[in-house]
Structures are given as structure tokens and as C-alpha cells.
Nucleic acid binder design. Sequence first.
RNA 1: UGGGGCGUCGUCAAGUGGCAAGACACAGGGUUUUGAUCCCUGCAUUCAGAGGUUCGAAUCCUCUCGCCCCAGCCA
Length: 557
Amino acid sequence: METDNKKGHFIESIIIKDIENNKNKGKVLTRFPPEPNGYLHIGHAKSICLNFNMANKFNGKCNLRFDDSNPAKEKQVYIDSIKSTVNWLGFEFGTPLFASDYFEKLHDFAVELIKKGKAYVCSLSADDIRKYRGTLKEPGKDSPYRKRSVEENLDLFTRMKNGEFDEGEHILRAKIDMKSPNINLRDPIIYRVKKASHPRTHDKWCIYPMYDFAHCLSDSLEGITHSLCSLEFEDHRPLYDWTLDEIKTPCHPQQIEFARMNINYTVLSKRKLQRLVEENLVQGWDDPRLPTLEGMKRRGYTPESIRNFCNTIGVSKKESRIDMTLLENCLRDDLNEKAPRVMAVLRPLKVTIENYPADRTEELTAKNHPQKEDMGTRNITFSKEIYVEMDDFMEDPPKKFFRLGPGREVRLRYAYLVTCTKVIKDSAGIIKELICTYDPDSRGGNAPDGRKVKGTIHWVNANDCIDAKVRLYDRLFKDENPEQGKQDFIENLNPDSLTELESCKLEKGLINAVPGNVYQFERLGYFCLDSKEDRKNNSVFNRAVSLRDTWAKRLKK
RNA sequence: UGGGGCGUCGUCAAGUGGCAAGACACAGGGUUUUGAUCCCUGCAUUCAGAGGUUCGAAUCCUCUCGCCCCAGCCA
């Protein structure tokens, strides 16, 4: 079940108070404002859930607004991907909105500011602008162009718009305070010339607004009540407020900042994810090892599990590093409820049942879920030759090993009790096959004499199982915090993050698997058919997450 | 003595002057034809530290310490 953070977090408290005070006439309108310059990752999911949840909880709405004010970096493919990912996560946003839809209005607002004497065209070079800005500890100096007349500014800005100048020749700046201790207030640039084609407005414009100018005004134009963003924009809030105070706007949304999340053993910055992709350290943006939402989807993560994760971690202003295990656990919780159980052998070891008739194949009934009757049953076949998991046999097992060993008896799930009588090895001493006997009276898994058999192992019928490739994923980085220290985070990559197994044996019903369906391979974990691989030759299954394994944990100690 | 933030269990996180929720992790135990699931039980005399106010402080005040962000014509 989806947990609802009952207690509420500080943003929710603010919203509740605002509603009580009838601020914004008690309305709530939020927005998720991605820049279409990359793919969404789990960090974005936190923001998406926050914004949509707040809107939904208080009968409001959440807009999906693309913050597309920098044509140099933005692409239509990202717009498409982001839209479908937000939908996949389970949120309705109606018609997507774009900051670029407001370019005309934004331009007019800039003119308004110029006329008011609160913005000017500056013709300093990029280099000089940096020099005049001062440093963190020293105040900046006024630009020599700061005192240009309104008329001259208007003329220059128009000519910037008309394409008369090259990039960098002139820019439009807000006239605030070059001596402000807050660098964002030292006459921030609000418009620049950029002769790039925009994915949506194409070549209509050659000047584009900067984030600080476009964002607050877009919020206001949409009637946003609560503008939620991450902590690094805290310093920008005075500028957000200044702009909305100086310009005649429909409303003045409240910017509230919250902390981004970090997850251990992975990275969550667009730049770093991009490097992994570009340097071919992973296989694309939807590599199942990546924390991108497309990667997670391909791996087998469900939208519910991700939403649940976001609701579980909470919202605060403290920087956090969340355990990967929490994410995995949210997935297990969800999949445990809905994944049908099935049997598959990843590292096959052939077993011949010596006292079972060679010409016989029988059908047995298996439950699709041990606790949920309504998920039904299925028939599985059993015959003289089967495969079991290599890991489920030990030649010299310790006492507590409840699996196969010479002379030991185990239960084949839903089938029979079998006892290992012989181990066949090749000349190199590698175990090739097991010979077992079965108890014909134990059909279904229990002996009439009531003897207790502790171990139950999974198996697959050799003569009708299907072959498949299975990919096991482990954490992408060796270190809990890959970005820590001086060394490049790439050095921290886990060389064993991907294990590919060939010739795995699956029960034959899996031939009907559809990409996106997640199954529990009993005793192993949750797996889904890969959505990208060609099914013709060989199926490829991805392991979304393993089952909790207290036995493996015990072995480590 | 540039500015802005943040410090509550291993990890998240409630708590807003009345005697430290919850989740994950961890440790025990029970059920179990998945060493899964499920179910019990335990797990911060203490809230970065030190002073102070108060009958009473994680919550208020003072100082100290630690961590994060800001000098893109990126968002």
C-alpha cells in the first residue's frame, strides 16, 4: 500500500497554514519545472511526487512546465521522454506548459523594467562582467553602462531582439545593487543574445531570458501558489521576489526550498550521469543500473514502488544520503504483493531421477502466489531429468545447509522429495550431474510417513524448459559516496555491477512473458523481461532486485 | 565578522516548553513446501558541544564546533 506521510512535512505545514489564512483564496497550484536537457532520474521523482501530492492533497493542480529558456542545451527528445516518464510515474498533468510559450510576455516584462529604470543594457564583455561582479567577499563595481538612458536601453534591447548584435555584445541586466552581499543581486543578467534554434520557437527569437527572470514570471503567469525548488535556489529567492515586486504581475507565488536527496552507491547529477553514458561506462540512459527513471523502469521498478519511496523518505532541508536498501525494499514490498511466482534456474545443474520412468512426464499444480488464492495456480511438468540450482548443492555441506548434498533429502517445490545418491564429475573434477532417487509417495512435496524435510529448492523440467539470458545487477559504485574525495568518481565504479548469465533455464510458461511484467523467480528475486532486447533468439530477463537472503547474510559473517 | 542554509538512533524522519513517533537497517524469537512473505520482541535517560532562562528545554537565549550552497551570458 502507498504510505501517506500522515504527519506531514514542513512544506505541507506551510500550505495548510496558508489555506487556513485563506491566502490565494485557499487554492493550491504547484508545478514541476524540468529543463528539457536530459532524462529524469529518481531525484526528480522526489520533486514530482512532492509537487503533485501537495496539489492532489489540497484539491489543487500541478502543472508540468518545461523550463526551456536555453535553446543551446534543450531538445525535443528530452521533452518527449520527460512527458512519458511523468505519466508513467502515475501523474496527470493535462496539457504540458512551456516557459517558451511566455517569451512574448517575458519580453514585454523586460521592456517594462527598462522603462521603469530598473534594467539596462550592458555592453561589457563576459570577462569584464565577471570582474565587475566582485568576489564572494568583495563588493562589485557599477558597470559603466549602468547609467544609460531609458531611451538608449530601449533602443539597444530592441536591436538585440532584432538580431543586430552578436552573442555577447550586449546583455540586459536588472539594476539592483552591485554591492549586495548576495551575488545574485549584483545586477543579474536577465536576457542574453543566443543565436540558436529553439526546439519549439525555432528561429523566432534570438534573445532568451535567464532562469531568474523567466522562472518567477512563468510561475506568476500560471498563478502558481507555492513554487517548490531545491536548496541551492535559496540565494535566488530575494531576486525572485524583487522581480515580482518590480513588475506588474498577476500574483506573487511563494518560493519554498527543500533538500535534494542523495542515495548511496549511486550518483544523481545530470552531469555525472551524462558522463557515464557518454563514456560508454553504461549502456545508454536507460541502462538498468542507472538511477534514471527510464533505467529503473527497464530494470523492473514499478511506479508505485518509486512513489512509495518518495513518500517514505520525507521532505526537509537537511542534506541526506539515503540507503539504497530503502529503495530496494520499497520495490520488494510492492512486488511481493503483485508479482506472480514462477520457477527458473540461473546456474543449471542437471539432475537425473534414477527411479523415475524415462518415458513419463506428469503435471503438477503450482501456486502463482503462496498467500493469494485469487492469483490462481498453473500446471508445471516433471520428468526424469530436471535442473536445479548449482548453489543448492554442496558436496560437503555444513550442518545448517538445508539443501542438496550427498545422501541428503530435499523437497523439490510442488513436486517430490528427492535424495542425492551420486555425484558425477568430469575429468577435471567439476560437478556435471547429480543422480537422485525420488519418493513416489511424496507427490506434492510431503511424505505420508510425516517425516520432516526442512529444505525446499526450486527446479525446472529439462525436456520442456526454455533457455534465456539473465542479467544480474549490483550497485554501480563500490563506495557508498562515489563523489567523495579527490579522485574521479569514475574510479569508484563497481566492475561487477553487471553479471550476464547464459543458458538459464526457465519454466516453459515464461514463453508468454511480456516486457514490463515482473515475476518472482522463486528463491531468487524479481525479474522482468527486458524491453529492449529482441525476443526472437533468446529471452533476456533483468533482475530488478533479489529476495532478502538471510542465508547469504549469515554466510558472510 | 561576505551572504545564505543545515546539524534528533547506522540511514531517513516526527517533534514547535511538559517528560524522544514512525520507517529502513540491525539483533533475537515464532509461523512457513520460497533460508521469501507474515507475526512478535529488543534497539536514542538523550537531540553537534558548552553555558544560561525555566518547576520543567531537542524545543527559548548566548557562545563554540561541524557540514552544504553561491563569484555561468546554465537551470
